[in-house]
């Protein structure tokens, strides 16, 4: 104890320096490394190219449409994809191989593709697409229409939600700016 007190003169400066190092280090860890650790990166089960489909002149609504009762059909089922991609192509191009993978793994087995939904909202949220028809899809969704490869999906390791999932305050901010109710049951179920 005596010994430590003796070098206290140089110690104070060292302490401040170390504190500074600790401070900066924490900032680096917190802002740079932590976000990388927090999310796991996942890729879509099938490399679906929106560009290719858009170029064929397929409207977004053809696959993502509102039902007659105003409910959003969401993602197309394997069956509706199979209307065009019912058989393996046998092509050796990257796209051809991907189509064949889809046909083999899902169409033939009758399994739905476990697409990763970037804007995935939890069960306790009700979102009415019918009520938001006036807005551009890209106001909330990633603009995948121009993407040949779907972007990576980041899943929060702790909460299990997609990084792109809109947070409640974002919904509320828009509702407030539009003069729309922010009552709980407008969105929660």
């Amino acid at each position: 104890m005596e010994e430590k007190r003796s070098n206290s003169a140089g110690g104070v400066g060292g302490m401040v320096l170390c504190a500074l190092i600790g401070f900066v280090g924490a900032l680096v860890v917190g802002w740079v490394i932590f976000p990388k650790l927090l999310y796991s990166e996942k890729t879509q089960p099938i490399r679906f190219s929106h560009t290719v489909h858009a170029q064929l002149g397929i409207d977004c609504e053809q696959c993502h449409h509102l039902g007659p009762d105003g409910r959003f059909a969401g993602l197309p089922t394997t069956e509706s994809c199979a209307e065009c991609h019912g058989e393996e192509t046998g092509e050796t191009t990257a796209n051809g191989k991907e189509i064949d993978k889809f046909v083999k793994d899902y169409v033939k087995t009758g399994v739905q593709v476990p697409w990763l939904v970037y804007q995935y909202q939890p069960d306790n949220v009700f979102f009415s697409h019918a009520a938001h028809r006036g807005f551009e899809c890209t106001k909330c969704h990633l603009d995948v229409a121009k993407m040949d490869t779907p972007p990576a999906y980041y899943e929060n390791r702790l909460s299990g939600y997609s990084k792109n999932t809109m947070k409640m305050w974002e919904c509320e901010r828009c509702h407030a700016s539009m003069g729309t109710s922010n009552a709980c049951y407008v969105c929660h179920k």
Binding site: M15, L17, A19, G22, F23, G25, A26, L27, V29, G30
Partner: peptide
Amino acid sequence: RAFLGLVAGGAVGTMFT
């Protein structure tokens, strides 16, 4: 002391992350 400084600095810094 240096260690304490590091920890204290780190702790304060973490609050800003």
